[in-house]
Each structure stands twice: as C-alpha cells, then as structure tokens.
Design a protein around this nucleic acid. Sequence first.
DNA 1: TGTGGAATAT
DNA 2: TATATTCCAC
Length: 269
Amino acid sequence: MREDDSNWFSKWEDDLPSPEDLMPLSQTLISPHLAIAFDIQTPNTYTSLQQPPPISTPSSQPNSGEFDSPELGADADEQARTLKRPRLVWTPQLHKRFVDAVAHLGIKSAVPKTIMQLMSVDGLTRENVASHLQKYRLYLKRMQGLSSTGPAGDPATDHLFASSPVPAHFLHQGRPNSDHYLPYVPVAALHHQQQQMAAVAGYHGQLQPRYGQIGHFGSPRNGQFEHPLLNRQNQQVMNRVGAPVRNSVDDFESANGRKVLTLFPTGDD
DNA sequence: TGTGGAATAT
DNA sequence: TATATTCCAC
C-alpha cells in the first residue's frame, strides 16, 4: 500500500555499518550486577538496574540516592531487584516480532510467557508482553467487530498494530493453531534484521535523520531524538521456523528522566 | 506457587 | 495514550 515504506526500509538498511563496526560487544557481556558492583557503566545495565548510561541526565535519576552508598557490593543484588526497568516502547519492528510469535503459537495458545520466549528479545519481560497482548487482543476484537470497515477507533494504537498485518486466521474463530503459518522471516532476512538492530545499536545517541525516527524515546510524539543505546547481546540465529533469534532491547532515557526501552527505528511517520 | 488476564495506575 | 503494575482466579 505504502510504497515509501519499503523505500525507506531498503534505504535504511543499505548504509548500515557492519555489526563489527559498531558493537561494543565487550560491554554487553558485563552483567548488570558486575557493572554495578564495579561501577562500570554499560548501556545494558538497565536489565535490572537503574544506573543510567553516562549520556543521561544526571539529575534525572529517580533512585540516584540508592547509589550514593559507598558500599555497593552486597547491595547490588538488592538494587538489581528493586530498581525499575525502563519503559518499553513497542516499535513496529518489535510488534512484528510479537505478532510473529503469536502467529506461530496460535492465537489461542499464545500466552505471555511463551510469546516472550519465542520473541527472544533480551530485556523483554513477561509483563511487557502481557500488557501488550492485552491491548492487542482488544485490537483484534475491534478488528473482528468491524473487519469489513477496516480499522477504526484508537488511531495511535492502530497505527502500531496496523504496522504488522494481522494474520488472517487471527480474525477467524476456531481456526486451529497455525503450525503451517510461517511466523518468522526467512533466515536471510533475519540477517538483515539483525544488521539493522546492530546498526541501531551502534548509534549510541548519534542518530542520523535518514534512519528515521528511532522508536519513541520517552516522549512519543514530540519528535525529539534521545539516546538510543541499543546493544546487540547474545544473538543467536537459528534456521528453524519459530526458532528464536535473540535480540536485545536496551535502554534509553529521555530528557525528562524517564527511561525507555525500545527496539529498532520505527521508520514510519 | 506461578501464570494469565482484566482492571487499574502512572 | 501507552505501558506498567496490581489484583485475583486458576
């Protein structure tokens, strides 16, 4: 339908640096606990810790007081448990992965935990998925209700959900699990996708406009770029349908101090 | 006890 | 409004 979408996509992917060029991979290998314990700042300490990356606004640390203690070490575990993770932003790419996973599982048997496992995105939690699934089901319900008239209702939500086509059988009651449905893009395409992720990962706050908007960092609609700190971590490409590709979601912090997780540029808007 | 899902909060 | 969190049934 929208040709510029594909144009954007291919363009966007053309100039991607190779993963080798942009991966501070060693950093991603440092566990959040270690990072905190040794006062190492890594982009992915978000995993369970709030310690923001160096580029973040110092005054925007809601829990900075907890880190004032000179004695980390034993407290690191406690902090890791209690600190909040950044808010996840469901980019179209991430949502697509979600849809793929749901499609693979079958709409009936797709539950947060299995979806999460199938998506295999680092940092993604069951709660993230459950919350998104809840809304997606409402969307599907709406779609079922007015499938002849097309999407209606919440435009913002639909925009995201419409970014990945709803597998036809989602809208059909009683359709059995879709083992025949090919949820994941082919391996070759996965390579592209991974390079894209890596490319995004490499930017570390130096976004270039031609990459389009990278997710929405904290302030979804203000069009401002913040600090993308995506890091590829532990990627595994598998060649079976439905086998997971491990991606990563890393942290961002918007100017207002709100941390946000996201994945991939949205490329639309 | 862990999970799913709806309701509610932020 | 989008996402997180809470609550409760299973």
